[in-house]
Design a binder for these strands. Sequence first.
RNA 1: GGGGACGUAGUUCAGUUGGUUAGAACGCUGCCCUGUCACGGCAGAGGCCGCGGGUUCGAGUCCCGUCGUCCCCGCCA
Length: 597
Amino acid sequence: MCGALRLSDAGKPAVLMGWVNRRRDLGNLIFVDVRDRTGVTQVVFNKERNPALHAKAGELRNEYVIAALGKIRQRVPDTVNKNIPTGEVELIAEELRILNEAKQPPFLPGDTVLPNEELRLQYRYIDLRREAMQRNIELRHRVAIAIRDYLSAQGFFEIETPFMTRSTPEGARDYLVPSRVQPGSFYALPQSPQLFKQILMISGFDKYFQIVRCFRDEDLRADRQPEFTQIDLEMSYPQPERVWEVVEGFLTAAFKAGGHEIKPPFPRMSYDDAIRQYGSDKPDMRLPAMTDVREAFAPENLQTLGVSATLPVVAIRIPRVGELSRKERDDIKPLFKAKGGAKLFEDFKRLEKNFPEATSAVRKKAGTEADDLIVIVAGDGKPGGHPSEGGVKPEVKQHDHAVYTSAGLLRVALAQRYAAKHGAFSKTGDPGKDYRFLWVTDFPMFEYDEEGQRWAAAHHPFTSPHERDMDKLESDPGAVRALAYDVVLNGTELGSGSIRIHRQDIQRKIFHALGMTEEEARARFGFFLEALEYGTPPHGGIALGLDRIAMILAGAESLREVIPFPKTARAVDLMVDAPTPVSEAQLRELGIQVKKT
RNA sequence: GGGGACGUAGUUCAGUUGGUUAGAACGCUGCCCUGUCACGGCAGAGGCCGCGGGUUCGAGUCCCGUCGUCCCCGCCA
């Protein structure tokens, strides 16, 4: 292989097959770098040695596929290339075969500047030849293998589940597949193998996993593709801690495959604490937590500032930002997206001038350093700014929640803006600092859907509530906590799971709390409710995004860098040009008519 | 569905207040060159300025629309 040759190979005959990466024609001497998956090696053609061969080498162009036969030779000392691993040797060509010519490609794998992404996606086969992409795809392979090996060694079976399955209109939109045999009926591509893996528990396969494609017809983001790969697993009779242990195990193996030694167990934090301290259910632990500093202010202070005396007053601290100009402070304002009645105070200096005692108490409480950026987010104190909470008393109340999450979003936005100053996002080489994992636990069971005026499942409707909250299912759904957990890395949700409901009567209650009638539940999940009645063991599991793990390990900003054939923001594959209209005949066969607009 | 950025040579980009023949670098083609490695030198080819309309004596530049790519909000149990 092109990248494998070393000094110890000197004197050996060799055949190099690969692409012409670069050609340097010095006249009577031609150098050709031959590239394959493993790297590049220089091949030398000398007119003096072999005029016919040298002439043939003159015909070579970029991206021709060739076989070069010859002998490996140690380079003389002052011609060694220290920049590449094979730089101490070269192949002295004795024979050259042009296996295939190449049109001039729109860009070259060896180019130093990348073309725009549209072109990269259209000519993905050329883009994938680039060393960085080869490395990312290899990394992804190694990570997947490490996870398979680990789970298999732990007694998990990898079991396939159908891609053509039943549409369940909870959650994301389904991709539909029309049935030819039953016109007017559709399969759905799975958003996840959720029900199948629970059925597998009912079937006695007490440890299941699958590295499996999932499909969701929702709008895309840099970290969201319509088809993506999950590491899906489920086990019978687990405590949440047992699931976490398994995940920590395979993530350790995966990160080792990516060259990083991480150390489980990961810290754990309840959802409520995450909201209070970070204003997010996926806290980035690389930066300091927020602090509620309401107590630092006297009630009169709060009133003067027009701030609610009952809602939290949150201090956000970003280290090492230093002094900000008036303009820089103004630039902060648009980063703040107020939810509910949240208010921003971005000029801490002014607060210090007007409220010296309160602000010094804030500094003390938040543990600030001199060059920290401090901003305050508080609840609007206008009368009627926030209606009463009524009888509903979740642990973090709705309007508190709005202040915390507004602050949390600002914290992340500020951290991104001043990343160069605080340096918390730059890699140190210490996996304990670079990769801050976290378990977020005890999620709320339900979220109130303002639009639909009803309670909706926060995770999914098969999640088990906490035993202690069972009696609140009807009376106070907002206060019910679920046995649901997320694994979070550096502010990114890597995976989400739960202990499931294994009793049909409780499952029924949940559907009821979600406002689903008995008939609706039967119509949608009848097969599953029935299965629950035939001796279902307690079970639980989790699913993690393989693409996101690969992305983080590759240090990439987009999933597209670790997916060989990704789709654009409009869910289009630019290489194959999909989706496309289909013929009338195909539609007719499926009993489908397309409405012209 | 909404907001923002971008679209000029094969590629990456520049293009002033609207004004003569739209430039650079890399790549490409030809010639020269025996130790280069992002080789070097000389010469050359290459443009529907995304597309459509408008304003103007005159549009790459201004206006409207449209298409495409990217980022964000909504959405993603």
